[in-house]
């Protein structure tokens, strides 16, 4: 297992380098222009000078090389400097966003708190609700609970956040006036009262996002449990006199987790990708909003950096999922 893990980690380096190249080429090829948001009143020659000032005049390989150098060498140096107070990265060019002319990493770090509060929290909530629903729905297949669960999750999944988000804002902010419709990213939690305010501004986006997660994961959980509940080993376990809870929660659940683990692991990197539509609706301005505004503004260094960091997470969590398969089902052997 250890050698497998090391092999996968080592292999992931060329994979990621390749992915970063493909992303870069894709962004190069994509139509769009950082000048698209500059008003039409600015004449074309000036726009051309602005493009050149952004370094767009240089050939693609050079720009890719520069990005690699900045991201893999300069940025880690900055991190080291920040941790140990050293002075390695002084005067070196960092990855700079075209839109804001500031280091990309600083904006990413600035966006972390709200992303973690809202998107990560909704994911945790969603998973925690989904697992019991899925297990119980399968155990009591076609019961009222199962039917109701199916109905709610499927309707919840069919109704996209661009609609459900607006709907709950209209209900809870406009009609009832209970919750704020705009998320305050500068809010600091220092005491109980400010924590309550934080909860109030989080609850709507978390609800909307958790509904999607719950719908998806509970369906997979239910289906997988159903597959296993009728297996012979379940009858054997029952015949041995094991209690029903042990049979279901230990034997069946463990064997049913493989697809669920896959889905959960696929979802974690998306937390850091942010939730584009929901963030826009509630003005959470996390990483999702950062990514989409950068794409719209064709802020290539920002898009490249953020997508690449997501790619790292995707690759890592897929390794984690593969390792978990081996733990859940020791028969799975990779070497």
């Amino acid at each position: 297992m250890l050698t497998y893990t090391i092999r996968r980690l080592v292999l992931s380096i060329p994979t990621l380098l390749f992915i970063s190249l493909i992303i870069f080429l894709l962004l190069e090829l994509a139509p769009g222009d950082p000048m698209a948001q500059v008003p039409l009143t600015v004449p074309p020659e000036v726009k051309q000078q602005m493009r050149e000032a952004l370094g767009l005049g240089e050939p693609t390989p050079i720009r890719f090389g520069k990005w690699m150098w900045q991201f893999f060498v300069v940025e880690p140096m900055v991190l080291v400097d920040a941790t140990f107070g050293s002075d390695w990265a002084a005067e070196k060019q960092r990855v700079i966003s075209w839109q804001t002319r500031s280091p990309v990493m600083e904006i990413v770090i600035q966006r972390m708190p709200q992303t973690l509060w809202v998107v990560a929290m909704s994911y945790v909530v969603g998973v925690l609700i989904a697992l019991p629903i899925g297990i119980y729905s399968a155990y009591r297949q076609y019961s009222v609970f199962d039917q109701l669960g199916t109905f709610v999750t499927m309707v919840g999944y069919s109704v996209p956040p661009f609609f459900s988000g607006v709907l709950i804002i209209v209900i809870f902010s406009v009609q009832l006036g209970w919750l704020p419709s705009i998320y305050d990213t500068t809010h600091q939690v220092v005491d109980w009262d400010s924590f309550v305010i934080q909860l109030k501004q989080m609850v709507m986006p978390v609800m909307v996002l958790a509904l999607q997660t719950t719908a998806q994961i509970s369906r997979f959980m239910r289906a997988s449990m159903l597959d296993n509940l009728n297996q012979d080993y379940v009858w054997t376990a029952r015949a041995k006199g094991l209690s029903e809870s042990v049979v279901v929660m230990i034997h069946v659940l463990r064997n049913s987790m493989i697809p669920v683990i896959t889905v959960i692991a696929l979802g974690v990197p998306q937390i850091f990708g942010g939730a584009i539509i929901t963030e826009q609706i509630f003005k959470v301005n996390g990483l999702g909003q950062l990514l989409i505004t950068s794409i719209q503004a064709n802020d290539l260094p920002m898009v490249q950096t953020v997508t690449f960091m997501l790619a790292v997470l995707i690759v890592m969590f897929n390794i984690v999922a593969d390792l978990l398969y081996g733990i859940l089902d020791p028969r799975i052997r990779y070497d």
């Binding site: 090829l29 139509p31 769009g32 222009d33 950082p34 000048m35 698209a36 948001q37 039409l40 074309p44 726009k47 794409i295 719209q296 503004a297 064709n298």
Partner: peptide
């Protein structure tokens, strides 16, 4: 809009 108003000579 980001494509339409962008001046990317590569885009039709």
């Amino acid at each position: 809009a980001s494509v339409f108003f962008g001046g990317d000579p590569g885009s039709p």
